[in-house]
Computed example of a mutant assay.
Amino acid sequence: MESAAISKVAWTPTALFRWAGYLLGFALGGFFDGILLHQILQWHHLFSGIETAPWLDLRMQVMADGLFHLLMYGIALAGLWCLWRTRWEYAQPGAGRRLWADALIGFGVWHVIDAVLSHWLLGLHRIRMDSASPLLWDLVWFAVFGLGFIALGWWLSRRGGTSGTGRAGAAALFGAVAIAMPWSMLPAPGQSAVLVLFRPGVSAPQAIAALERIDADLLWSDASGQLWAVRPAAGQRASLLYRHGALWVGGSLLPAGCLGWLQVRT
């Protein structure tokens, strides 16, 4: 009788269990931003809005993105530690719903903080650097992935019962990727820019000769002469550069994105 009465007592999650969801969702928001916008869509880097040395060097931008992801790993590990410390709570009725709800809130909070701090106060970058209306993109991202996910998490946390609510939270996060990923295949206005990394031993004159084979316009190059941002001529395939010393050619099916704001260097 006593055990039956105890089982009817409503479970109240501890603060540590709540933080597990918040931190994991926050980290997932950062990874979503960095992987989708920095690497796949290539709309910006972390410090794309800073136009002074050393951030004009693309290698510094990529390094900053890597450090950003390292920070997200740290936050995710902190969330996993909180979840491990409160693992007994996950067996409670409604714990899965609560964890997903808090993760959705954390996901949305990341995008709110990123918009307010990185986009508008510090000017580190905008959602789409090459857009004629960067504020519009900022506001859409802020509303959908920021306020929208916070509202969804709040709704899920208030919903009674446990059936299907964990799946609803998972579907929301997967849905964010499903909505955003098709943008990565949209053609950019005009010819797409690509990054070309030549293997060690290929001199700058040899690299230039290879680029001339596809009539590429030079957008940017690093001091070593091995990393180039170029725009191939119409009808030319950047993949041909693999025959002429290229170690890696990236972005040929992606929007020009972050390359659009690079200035021609001579």
Rank of each mutant, 00 (worst) to 15 (best):
L136I: 10
W137P: 04
D138S: 12
D138Q: 11
D138T: 08
D138V: 11
L139W: 14
L139H: 14
L139D: 14
F142L: 00
F142I: 03
F145C: 09
G146L: 03
G146H: 04
L147Y: 07
L147S: 08
L147C: 10
F149S: 13
A151S: 06
L152C: 08
G153M: 07
G153D: 09
W154H: 06
W154I: 02
L156E: 09
R158P: 12
G160F: 07
G160D: 00
G161K: 01
T162H: 06
S163L: 05
G164D: 13
T165W: 09
T165H: 10
T165C: 00
A168Q: 15
G169E: 11
A170G: 15
A171H: 07
A172F: 08
L173R: 01
L173Y: 05
L173K: 02
G175C: 09
V177G: 15
A178W: 12
I179A: 15
I179R: 12
A180N: 14
M181D: 09
M181Q: 12
M181T: 11
P182F: 10
P182K: 13
W183K: 08
W183Y: 14
W183H: 11
S184E: 13
L186Q: 00
G190V: 03
Q191H: 08
S192A: 12
S192W: 06
A193Y: 03
A193D: 04
A193L: 03
V194L: 05
V194A: 08
L197D: 14
L197P: 08
R199P: 05
P200I: 08
P200L: 01
G201V: 11
G201P: 14
P205Y: 06
A207F: 08
A209T: 13
L211R: 10
E212L: 01
R213I: 01
I214E: 07
I214D: 07
D215E: 14
D215F: 08
D215N: 15
D215H: 10
A216E: 07
L218I: 07
L218G: 00
L219Q: 00
W220F: 10
S221V: 01
S224M: 11
Q226P: 07
W228P: 08
R231I: 06
P232H: 07
P232A: 02
P232C: 04
A233T: 03
A234S: 14
G235L: 05
A238M: 05
S239N: 15
S239R: 12
L240A: 15
L241F: 03
Y242K: 00
Y242P: 15
H244G: 06
H244N: 11
H244E: 11
G245I: 03
A246R: 00
L247G: 14
L247A: 15
W248I: 10
W248T: 07
W248E: 06
G250H: 10
S252A: 01
S252W: 05
S252F: 03
L253G: 11
L254G: 10
P255L: 09
P255C: 09
C258M: 02
L259P: 07
G260K: 10
L262S: 05
Q263G: 01
V264E: 12
